[in-house]
Design a protein around this nucleic acid. Structure first.
Lengths: 218, 218
DNA sequence: CGATAACGTGAGGGGGGCCTCGACTTAAAC
DNA sequence: GTTTAAGTCGAGGCCCCCCTCACGTTATCG
């Protein structure tokens, strides 16, 4: 590996770095990923220059703050694929994804693709997408999931949910569950009526992601 | 009525007003209701001062631009209440609402409550909400709609849809229909599984609206 | 206890949007 | 054609944010 181990940080530097991450985590969660960097520096009681020394770009900060949830997300997908009941796997995956974004506008922004170029997210997204495909296949093979659903549809369902948790996270952190339950009822094979509109092709889904990202961020 | 009829506009003033409205309509539709006023003035080839003379506040501009769609929205609700099949009425109302917001980020912002204080919208909202309640009641009486749905749920469904059309309007203007169809399948009485989470109370719904409005607008 | 590299700082330049206001221009009425 | 109220204009003040950099400070090591 070409990367050298970074030299140890000085004590004050370590303290400031921690303070910045704490402040950023809170600010991003409350205000979304476009929280102002100056505000984060103020919150951490550190000068703006120090913020930039530690995190030269906003993305560097985002990457660290997001890391945990990103891992949790992938793990949820892997767990879902391994569940005995494929339907339960699907429901678990959707619930867990929505749970991660509820009350955390940072992950909400990520899940809604408002930061399409967030670092390290690309890979996680691809992985989650692939796993999502397998979750769907299994549930369709099992006969519990409507046969016309595609992996891209999963993304749209999560995006749609993201607006609901965006609206309700401060009022009732569990409100989104109600609407996810309704959607799940619509996903069952027994409930399915034929869909008149075809799903977006993968290329189009990517463009839709970028479109969401264009909206008032960055 | 205490309002006098306004004096006729000068010819150049009328021309500029029209240009401003045209520009604003386009800008709001493309960029959402927080499109920059300076940009709208540029687009109309008019100075920023002129914009402010005609429309002292952003809301004055929004009110005029939105008016048509607002009426169309109420009309859709009234038509829906009068339809023979209550289920068709519900589907029609939801479809029409989503249709109005698809491809028009201005109405999308309105429907998503991102401008909670938009002028004249308050009344329209109340009317639509009331009509929505009657649409639901009829469909539940008919036995076609799941009995646990409330008027507030309708709002959340539309908000959720708004994110989908936000993402897809430029790629496939009809993509949202696919997800609305899935949601409708979840709304049928036959598809319903009991909902574990209770709906938000009216007071909470209002707070959720304001919450959405807080997000990066104004 | 120096010496020094790492670190912290905040003023300042650049950008952009909001909104105001006084000087200028023009349509319209006589 | 003159008058004048209505209308237009855009510079400029305000605010907030992004990001850089030269200078002062501090931890760490010999």
């Amino acid at each position: 590996m070409p990367t050298r181990k970074p030299p140890p940080l000085r004590k004050d530097a370590r303290r400031n770095r921690t303070a910045l991450l704490t402040a950023a985590k809170a600010a991003f969660a409350e205000e979304g990923l476009n929280a102002t960097l100056e505000g984060i520096a103020r919150r951490a009681e550190v000068s703006i220059g120090t913020l930039y020394r530690h995190f030269p770009t906003r993305m560097d900060l985002v990457a660290v703050v997001i890391a945990d949830k990103k891992r949790a997300w992938i793990k949820a997908a892997e767990t879902a694929v391994a569940m005995e009941s494929a339907w339960d796997g699907l429901a678990f995956f959707l619930e867990r994804t929505c749970e991660l974004q509820a009350g955390d506008l940072a992950f909400n922004d990520i899940a809604s693709m408002r930061f399409p170029h967030a670092p390290g997210i690309e890979a996680a997204r691809k992985r989650a997408y692939d796993l999502g495909g397998r979750i769907i296949e299994r549930a369709q093979a099992e006969g519990s999931l409507r046969p016309d659903l595609t992996p891209a549809d999963l993304a749209f369902i999560v995006w749609a949910q993201s607006r609901i948790s965006e609206a309700t996270h401060a009022i009732d952190p569990d409100a989104w569950r109600r609407y996810l339950a309704i959607t799940l009822d619509g996903l069952r094979a027994k409930a399915a009526h034929p869909l008149a509109v075809t799903p977006l092709r993968p290329r189009q889904v990517m463009r839709a992601q970028l479109e969401l990202g264009r909206r008032r961020l960055r």
